[in-house]
Nucleic acid binder design. Sequence first.
DNA 1: ATTACTATATAGCGAGTAT
DNA 2: TATACTCGCTATATAGTAA
Lengths: 213, 213
Amino acid sequence: MDLRFVLFELSRMLECVDSVVSISSKQLGTTLGVSQQTASRYLAILEKNRLIKRVVKKRGQDISLTKEGLAILKNMHDELGFFIQGKKMLEITGKVSIGIGEGAYYIKMYADKIEKELGFKPYYGTLNVKVEEMPAGMQRLAFKKIPSFEKEGRSFGGIKIAKIRLKYGKKAVDCYLIMPERTHHKNELEIISKENLRSKMGLKDGSLVIVEV
Amino acid sequence: MDLRFVLFELSRMLECVDSVVSISSKQLGTTLGVSQQTASRYLAILEKNRLIKRVVKKRGQDISLTKEGLAILKNMHDELGFFIQGKKMLEITGKVSIGIGEGAYYIKMYADKIEKELGFKPYYGTLNVKVEEMPAGMQRLAFKKIPSFEKEGRSFGGIKIAKIRLKYGKKAVDCYLIMPERTHHKNELEIISKENLRSKMGLKDGSLVIVEV
DNA sequence: ATTACTATATAGCGAGTAT
DNA sequence: TATACTCGCTATATAGTAA
């Protein structure tokens, strides 16, 4: 049994996001169609993984979701929404950040493939935008894909590319968002363009920008 | 692994509800973190359960969701929505149906418990309303619960009760919806009231009514 | 490349039970 | 009543391989 499903079933018993449900392992087992022992184990694992908080009592246990547990369910909801209701425009606000400076090297490596897909030679560098939370289903908004490849003895992962509109104050520029297929969990968007976006738009570290996907 | 999550992962690869994705069992296995053989088996089972349609080809397989498969995901999305966004008012349209006539007997058995919870002696009968599709998360809208019990050597399952407003033409009456806790999958709502709803509202089999939960 | 069979390994379930 | 441990068994995953 996938523990996400246990989490999902628990959510059905909770009145709302930050409420607490009192349930015995026997009851939970019955709802899930497993034994009391197994349900007990599930709860122990969920607690260990910090997806639920629980207080084991003489009669049943009080269970509530942690921030992480809720995030998993929210993410599932978002993903399903993207799928069922179709693509949507996303607007993300973030701050320009310095990045690790690797952007230039990577773009150089991907440059010919990017040129083939987008029809222009990209500026050798990325504009990094730090966001509070990476929105779910962003990969779905991609319109181009570059598969993984090998070059100079190194392997480069596949990337997805989405068209975006970068806004800073009253200025707005059409450019492209690069998304590694292997989910990296740093909360940064990497944006590429024909030109140097920093100088073109007058951006500095910390500048508040809006990304319209 | 719960197959619902295989379905969920597949949905993430599909562009939209009725599109087709071409994927090999190897690829799917990698995304799910299982072997190619296991992924292959998953797909076979999903197909057998009529949750996906697939065309196995020389290079990968074309996969799309069936109506049933999509319904499962939609249901998950709805349930998560109820949980994350909070309770909502539901409006269900259905037709008065004849039912199996067991309603009277059951209500008689539950009568004293209903009276204790709702403060009135219910009419010995239920108004059955046939709906197209049972909306997800309806149980969540219950405000009272009667636990399972034994009586006259038989056991009666727990039920949940929700306040509803029954509308027929310009008439509207406040009454109660009875929901067995053990999910029964017939698409009928069972409504109880102090009085005989059929005669009070002039309902006949097939009358189109609106149920506001 | 693929899919998917059979055989083997192992992960996970639940009975029994202690607490 | 509960929770949750050990342990044997079975259900499920993977390796090897055929088609």
